[in-house]
Design a binder for these strands. Sequence first.
DNA 1: GGGATTTAGTTATGAATAATAACGAATACC
DNA 2: GGTATTCGTTATTATTCATAACTAAATCCC
Lengths: 164, 164
Amino acid sequence: MARRSLKLAGREIEEPEDGDAAAVELISLSDIVGYALRRAQMAVFEDFGRRFAALNLSPAQYSTLATIGDNPGRKQSEISAALGIQRPNFVVLMDELERRGLAERTRSGDDRRSNALALTASGVELLKRARALQGEQEAAVEAILGGEERKTLVAALRKLAREI
Amino acid sequence: MARRSLKLAGREIEEPEDGDAAAVELISLSDIVGYALRRAQMAVFEDFGRRFAALNLSPAQYSTLATIGDNPGRKQSEISAALGIQRPNFVVLMDELERRGLAERTRSGDDRRSNALALTASGVELLKRARALQGEQEAAVEAILGGEERKTLVAALRKLAREI
DNA sequence: GGGATTTAGTTATGAATAATAACGAATACC
DNA sequence: GGTATTCGTTATTATTCATAACTAAATCCC
């Protein structure tokens, strides 16, 4: 049977048949780095959400705990800047970590404007468990891409973030 | 001079010296795909924002115009599903594109619940200019990574988004 | 044929994330 | 010593994303 034609926006176009129904094509987007980045990030963060549901940690909270763990005693503004989080938003993030007893702010001795950040004992312990979960996600990625290409991917992403 | 020690969260740690000030280390995050993805996506979207400022198009608006252009006459829900955008959110996105005269909804003949989407003439024209800008961003990425690795990156991202 | 179910688009609303302005306290500058 | 700057904070707004519920139309199915 003939395709039905449809007048849209002043132009005649072919109306898609039923057989096409499942196949909306993203041809213009399929080769675009920005779009592929967004879809991949959404998928990986959803996976993160499932894995970390038991620990009740968001990606931002995990990255904060890990960075404080790597750099104990650093100023709040140094940690937030390293993570690319705006200072006002980092305040509420720290409020929550402190409320949960995972991290602490201490008024710094040599500059009493600033807070030195550190993990509490239970923060250290939670971070350990979180690192294990994170390792599982990394292993899952490696199972999909292979170890070599996973490394290549991370390197490319870092270069892109740095240089664009 | 000796390092000053600082008592934080019940443990003695070395207080970072001034020389360390610029060097908060993200060692725990530096090899994590999810974190690298996020930073790269932020950077690429910021670059997108600068390039598309004159056209006043967000990434979501651009991807919508491009997908309607590739699939004229398709149902609103088909386009939104293909883009991974929730239906309620897609409604306001389309409201704005329609308000600006770039796209149109037409009540479909064979199913009068659904909207068939199409670009207007000025939508087609704007999309053409947008594609040119997008091409420039892609060229910028290629200048950083090289053509081969850009292709590899997109392929890895798509695979990851699909399989994780 | 007609009532129950499902689907498409919409509205309203809420949660989460991110960006900006402005303030007090402490420090640095000169 | 007075001005300017920095750190953390509050308040506020914008943006993005997710959920529930409604209407109109189509489908199911007996």
